[in-house]
Design a protein around this nucleic acid. Structure first.
Lengths: 177, 177
DNA sequence: ACAACTATGTATAAGAC
DNA sequence: TGTCTTATACATAGTTG
């Protein structure tokens, strides 16, 4: 696509190379966005050039959290484990201090989610924290919309989540070589 | 690019949509590979349609493991240290005080953040902690505006997050075949 | 580096198999 | 879905500012 056909090999001249990089990066992103719209598909595009900083692209109207949700939904076992972990974390948090967990913008009709969680002497109402702690889905949402994070409890759990994922990665990397 | 110009909106007919999806997926991958070669850049491309399995693409001669390696090797030590410090700070904050952390809106007004936390022989200033929290919550923003990244700590956390995302992707790929 | 321009190579829409 | 064809829309190489 241009005045001339070019060979498919690395452009030697660094100046020219990074110029082409910008142009093509832009083009690639456009294509990706077109495809996301036309075909109703999720796309994550990560690009690094040797000279410029990394860029992660994804369509705005398709939050990264939603894409990750899909990915993390794949293993039922993982989800169960995750849920157990977040509940445990919640219990710990509330035991140590009177941390308030606001229920965000969501209407909680008090008939629903009356489930209670008992551990030691503390009773925790799950309904309160459900939106926040139910599974990693909501945690990922918080990463995506950081402005919604308005207290320490959330941040702590997010951090824990990050840490726990990292340990999984290390394991996976060892297994995979 | 075709007989007709088409509107940039989701194709209604599911059959046609998935047909276009295949075509464009192929085209997008080709572009990505071209760019990887021409511009000597690393690219990771994750695509899924609602109907088909997720596909993770990356050039063969640039193995994902190498890209991950690049990311993890770059600042392994700083990442570990950073993570430990952040977590420790958060935990201490929760344990010792029931303090509200002002979030997002940085009002550096009066004698800001007089609260201090004692741990071992170290004094942790709340202001410092808040910076950490802000760092955490701006991860995704930073990926979109890499020029904003002005210190190693931020980059470190960004990397953690990226690596965790990639891990999920990798895992999904394996599970789905 | 980014924007604009033009000529030309490419991707792809529509259609048939 | 995959592949082929053809006509057309689009992306981009080369270049200048």
């Amino acid at each position: 696509m241009g005045r001339k056909k070019i060979d498919l090999k690395t452009i030697e001249c660094p100046k020219e190379r990074s110029s082409k990089y910008s142009k093509r990066k832009k083009g690639l992103l456009k294509k990706a966005e077109e495809m996301a719209v036309l075909c109703d598909s999720d796309i994550i595009l990560l690009v690094f050039s040797p000279t410029s900083k990394p860029n992660l692209f994804y369509p705005h109207y398709r939050p990264l959290s939603r894409i990750l949700e899909k990915l993390s939904n794949m293993s039922e076992y993982e989800r169960e484990e995750r849920r157990a972990y977040t509940k445990k974390t919640l219990v710990k948090l509330l035991k140590n201090k009177n941390v308030e967990i606001p229920n965000e913008n969501h209407n909680h009709s008090s008939g629903r989610d009356e489930v209670q969680l008992q551990e030691d002497d503390k009773v925790i109402e799950l309904g309160e924290a459900r939106e926040l702690l139910d599974d990693n889905t909501s945690i990922l949402r918080n990463w995506q919309d950081p402005h919604r994070v308005d207290d320490l409890a959330k941040l702590t759990i997010m951090e824990d989540h990050l840490v726990s994922i990292l340990s999984l990665i290390k394991k996976a990397q060892i297994e995979q070589g």
